[in-house]
Design a protein around this nucleic acid. Structure first.
Length: 558
RNA sequence: GCGCCCGUAGCUCAGUUGGAUAGAGCGUCGGUCUACGAAACCGAAGGUCACAGGUUCGAAUCCUGUCGGGCGCGCCA
């Protein structure tokens, strides 16, 4: 087995099962790290879980569990203790730590990867900002979140599609075209139009191409296309790529909106009132019913969005995740209702709500409104503090917490940005490995110092002297941290919480820095040096992959 | 008024399908470069986990209520 922790978990489970004595309840014991190193390498609450069913004190069960575990673990366990209300604390041998690093390196890119026989097909639709203006910082948060979540789900066994819905028809687009036309004719855009400077620039460009300010349809077409290009370029630079750019207009043109309404009607969820066509969402958990077709016969955005999600399902999507801005959270109940009305389980539609990004500048909060034309652009932010820092910043905090981003701080203290802390650890390891190559204790792939290959190191570390070398406390702590990677990634994916990986990256870097302080690597002596080189290699890989899940680079040098 | 989210160190925030003495970064104070990167490390100070009840061996975490903040409540998207 390539995951030492999974192996340990299995051992605990089987020991607990052996103590069940016919009691019907099976147990799911925890395997966790005790709060203090003196309490052992790992601990389990299995005895406390078994106690109620067995009608015996937890500590008594714990003693029997200790014996069962001891027999199963053999020399891997140094000793096993019972503490507190019935925790069973396991102290693992140095040899177990050494062996674990070898398995980690041997697993390569598969370490942490889950490969189910039949992966769930998940469509992550994110950003989907209207193509009526450049991407704002708020969209950037959605982009960072959606992309990182997609990466996490890919790692943990889902088949992912990234999709961007282009709202290229409707009232906002019409107002956008009107605003361009106004600028082309030297007028101010209408009150409810787009007043940003980019509209004037765009008007100038379109005038240069000979566009006709009276032809609003043409302006809408050219305008949204230009904006889409700009959005794509911004996202590309931000490290986000979509598999599909889905045009809302295509739904209209293919008659899919009528088809969706027709299906809802057949299922008995549609009625007419006041000249409009309504969906009875209030019977499916929404506050009130919603309009599908306005009294003028035009479909609402909601109707188009139902058709869109129906289309996703028809394409074979098994789960839909739509990170939404906080200002759209009221939309979720009606979409769930619509999916249920279409005969599907509403739980396969998830809408993580992205709370606001507030930019703080000069001690004041600047709110962003695309329509007023005063907004902070994602491109501007990445110009200031870089893509890595922007992504790391945005993913450091839970998506459901409002994010205060202090521009002054981000600018003036970009050196102290937490992303550098993690990247520095990676670069430091790379530097150690380069040195090891230079001194001949490590063979580099293809003769390039930066391309040290873990597989070679793994084979070097299988040497018996390296496996039995005693391990320092900080060395053992770092190894255990690295072994947490699969579990952390799985939890982050399951909880839809990429920010957990940012925390994990920081913790791993801190553990590495502590290891570095205590443990000489190059020149540490026979047995110890290859063992520590193996740890460095493993740490480098885990940090790089964790940063990769966040979309942040892992530099060899800084 | 109703709904969703939030309230944890001076500041910004982790930790929430119940676990042991509640953590990190920044800021403050004091230390550490004659070994592989000091963008680092070590130590100190700093907390009624908004408040009040409840559930139990055990609550920041679950339940109820109160207070405070954000967002939403269109035949807009």
């Amino acid at each position: 087995m390539s995951d030492p922790l999974e192996e340990l978990r299995t051992t605990i489970r089987s020991a607990a099962e052996a103590l069940r004595d016919g009691s019907p309840d099976s147990v799911a014991p925890t395997l966790e790290r005790p709060p203090k190193p003196e309490l052992g390498d790992y601990s389990t609450n299995a005895a406390m879980l078994l106690a109620p069913a067995r009608g015996r004190p937890a500590r008594e069960i714990a003693e029997r569990l200790r014996d069962e575990l001891g027999a199963r673990l053999g020399p891997s366990a140094e000793r096993i203790e019972i503490a507190g209300p019935g925790f069973v604390n396991i102290f693992l041998a140095d040899r177990w730590h050494r062996d674990s690093v070898v398995s980690l390196l041997g697993a390569g890119e598969d370490f942490g990867r889950v490969s189910p026989a039949r992966p769930e097909r998940v469509l992550v639709e994110f950003v989907s900002a209207n193509p009526t203006g450049p991407l704002t910082v708020a969209s950037g948060r959605g982009a960072a979140f959606g992309d990182s979540l997609a990466r996490l789900l890919e790692l943990t066994g889902s088949r992912i599609e990234r999709e961007y819905l282009l709202n290229d028809v409707g009232g906002q687009v019409r107002r956008f075209a009107e605003s361009i036309a106004a600028r082309m004719q030297g007028r101010e855009p209408p009150e409810d139009g787009y007043r940003g400077e980019y509209v004037a620039e765009l008007a100038g460009e379109l005038a240069g191409e000979g566009a006709d300010p009276a032809d609003l349809e043409d302006l809408a077409h050219r305008g949204t296309e230009a904006m889409q290009e700009r959005i794509e370029a911004t996202l590309e630079r931000f490290g986000v790529r979509f598999d599909t750019w889905f045009s809302e207009r295509s739904l209209h043109e293919a008659g899919k909106i009528e088809a969706a309404i027709e299906e809802l009607r057949e299922r008995g969820h549609v009625y007419e009132s006041e000249g409009a066509v309504w969906l009875r969402t209030s019977e499916l958990g929404d506050d009130k019913d919603r309009v599908l077709l306005r009294s003028d016969g035009e479909p609402t955005y909601f109707a188009a969005d139902i058709a869109y999600h129906r289309d996703k399902l028809e394409r074979g999507t098994e789960r839909m995740i739509d990170p939404l801005g906080a200002d759209h959270h009221g939309y979720v109940p009606r979409m769930r209702a619509a999916i249920e009305a279409l005969g599907h389980d509403p739980d396969l539609y998830e809408a993580p709500i992205m709370q606001l990004v507030r930019l703080v500048e000069g001690g004041e909060r600047a709110r962003m409104s695309k329509r007023k034309g005063e907004f902070a652009l994602l491109d501007e932010l990445t110009d200031d503090i870089g893509v890595d820092a922007t992504r790391f910043f945005m993913l450091q905090r839970s998506h459901d917490t409002a994010l205060d981003l202090d521009l002054d701080l981000a600018r003036s203290q970009s050196q102290d940005n937490p992303v550098y802390y993690v990247q520095y650890a990676h670069a430091r390891i790379a530097s150690i490995l380069r040195k090891a190559v230079a001194e001949g204790s490590l063979e580099a792939a293809a003769g390039k110092a930066d391309a040290v290959d873990g597989a070679r190191l793994a084979s070097a570390a299988v040497d018996e002297a390296a496996l039995t070398a005693p391990a320092e406390p900080t060395e053992r702590a770092l190894v255990k941290r690295l072994l947490d990677f699969p579990g952390e990634a799985a939890r982050a994916a399951q909880r839809r919480a990429p920010h957990r990986m940012a925390a994990f990256a920081t913790a791993t870097a801190a553990d590495f820095h502590a290891f570095y302080r205590d443990c000489q690597v190059v020149g540490a002596g026979e047995g110890v040096e290859p063992a520590r080189l193996a740890i460095c290699m493993a740490a480098k890989r885990v940090i790089a992959r964790t940063l990769g899940l966040l979309g942040v680079s892992a530099p060899e040098r800084m």
